[in-house]
Design a protein around this nucleic acid. Structure first.
Lengths: 334, 334
DNA sequence: GTGAAAGCGCTAACAA
DNA sequence: TTGTTAGCGCTTTCAC
């Protein structure tokens, strides 16, 4: 493998000074046309490619790279979010270094360290459920920071959230409105911010409708689809639940499996759109987050900071929408 | 925002030479214990963090970063693949810069250029359907290169594929075996490598069973779910197809929509697992690729090259598995 | 075992 | 408009 041609090689070949090549490469317009031609030729002949790593070591320079930490790239929700962020970043000329924290605080912190070592221009972060080191314990300077999906203890950063409580509230209300006497909550640990919010919204809806909050109907230990299935089977056996609010994707899929297994279908609404939702019989109603908008907002906020925006840090809460497809009612046909 | 502490600052603070700090940071064992302590303290007090970008500019150094180009991060197939690659890369201490080519050759080439500028240690690539610049036209030196999911014209790279033909063959065979007199092929353009392979497998199965290949039953113009739905409705109207092999995800979803619309269900098998497959009634049989294994293999190959492996370039073809759930048979109940 | 000096590829200041 | 010089933060000779 031969040596990579450097800017110096180009300068020699073109018979100009190093700095002139640098100017050319950086799009400086004040270059004589003949010089520009010679440089262009030399670059083509040598197959020269600029070394961003070298350019970046100088303070004030950047590699046009944003670091993104999410929970798990194979989760469609986060994949979609990452994609939306990628689009927003690309529009401003940034690429993305993406890493999965697996909701593990220690791993998350390690990823932060590595991104900082890499001198990324900004970090967009989904704070993990299991908390690690606090951001304030990281010695400054920190690059611009944006939190998505969940907030953080660190105030000096922009935050983009969905209206989890509102979505859960409208879903629960829709179930009650469709005639359910009781509604069960099936979700992951309420220590996860979004789950806590969704539980709050669920409770609000019950209180507003003058229904008691039955703790036996609140199940917040669902980490996997299988967990959810077991929990819903248990709820079916208990006989107290007349409807199910599945507070995330996995909970919804698990509930559907349980219904199929038990050959009983309770009215249900899920949180987050999923591929199967419209195809299943009955089609599943869901609370839908505008993931594209969240990702775009996060990327735009990061880019704005990189462009020197100095406005106070903001928290953006994006609305959710309730998509009713029929599963909120009890279907005699099933 | 204050200045970042440098290795020099640490050296001053600890009262040692710059090089000693460098040794410490790089894990050189030949350092006096007292020196090491002093350096560790100085690093902690200053909040020093190593600047990988600076370390990397020296030839032979690396930032432990692999570039990954896929079609679309929001596609669950590629998100899962990316996640598997991330795991393999992380195991060897590498992070991933991920970008979506959107199947666009020009965009793909731009991403390659940017990754090369970033001095990534290796590139893992899903070649886009629309071809752009050939790899051989890129002036060397190139970092190690691995192709996943589809092969490329470029021989000097390892390649990881799934056994598309074999999967299609077994699916078609299963449909015939279940009693179908004819099987339709519904898929995307056979110019896409994976599609061509799947069509080949489909044909093999027909030939092996002494059935004619009816060109009217081969539909390779399905780019979207809607396309697929229309094509399958047309097949139903034609009356010649007794079963459907849906050669990708979108084809399978479209077929299901068509069946629902026409209130007719033909025996079918899809290619690629999808979330809804097991939940739909009847549960859909699919050819499943081991995406984890593919991603892992790709990452391992890249890492092996980075570790200096000099063995000839390989093409790994991973087996697919046929998951029969019932949709391959005609269900009277539907 | 430790340190001084040179230089990686590039950009910023300043001259010319 | 172009070139010269210095230096970014780090690693690498090669002395001590």
């Amino acid at each position: 493998m031969q040596r990579k041609p450097t800017m110096n090689d180009v300068a020699h070949r073109a018979g100009v000074a190093l700095k002139t090549v640098s100017r050319y490469v950086n799009g400086d317009p004040t270059i004589g046309a003949d010089y520009a031609d010679r440089i262009r030729e030399a670059i083509a002949e040598l197959g020269y490619r600029r070394n961003m790593a070298a350019a970046r070591i100088r303070p004030g320079q950047s590699a046009k790279m944003i670091g993104l930490i999410i929970s798990d790239l194979s989760n469609p929700y986060f994949a979609t979010l990452a994609r939306a962020i990628e689009l927003g970043a690309a529009a401003a000329g940034y690429m993305l270094t993406i890493a999965s924290s697996e909701e593990d605080g220690a791993r998350h912190d390690l990823l932060v360290d590595r991104l900082l070592e890499q001198q990324v221009d900004a970090i967009i972060d989904v704070p993990p459920r299991a908390p690690g080191r606090a951001w304030r314990d990281i010695p400054p300077p920190l690059p611009p920071l944006v939190f998505v999906d969940r907030p953080s203890d660190w105030a000096a950063a922009d935050t983009v959230l969905a209206d989890n409580a509102g979505g859960a509230r409208s879903a629960t209300r829709a179930l009650l409105h469709a005639g359910a006497g009781t509604v069960a909550f099936v979700g992951d640990s309420v220590e996860i911010f979004t789950m806590g919010e969704r539980l709050t919204g669920y409770r609000q809806a019950l209180v507003e409708a003058d229904r008691p909050v039955d703790d036996d109907l609140v199940r917040d230990t669902v980490h996997t689809v299988d967990d959810a299935m077991r929990v819903v089977l248990d709820l079916l056996a208990g006989g107290r639940a007349q409807a199910v609010f599945a507070a995330n994707n996995r909970a919804a899929l698990g509930a559907l499996r349980a219904f199929r297994l038990a050959e009983t279908f309770l009215p249900m609404i899920g949180f987050d759109e999923f591929e199967a939702a419209a195809l299943i019989n009955p089609p599943i109603s869901v609370v839908s987050q505008d993931i594209q908008a969240m990702g775009r907002a996060a990327a735009d906020l990061a880019v704005a900071r990189l462009n020197g925006s100095d406005i106070p840090c903001t928290t953006t809460v994006l609305p959710t929408s309730l998509i009713l497809r029929g599963s909120e009612r009890l279907l005699p046909a099933f």
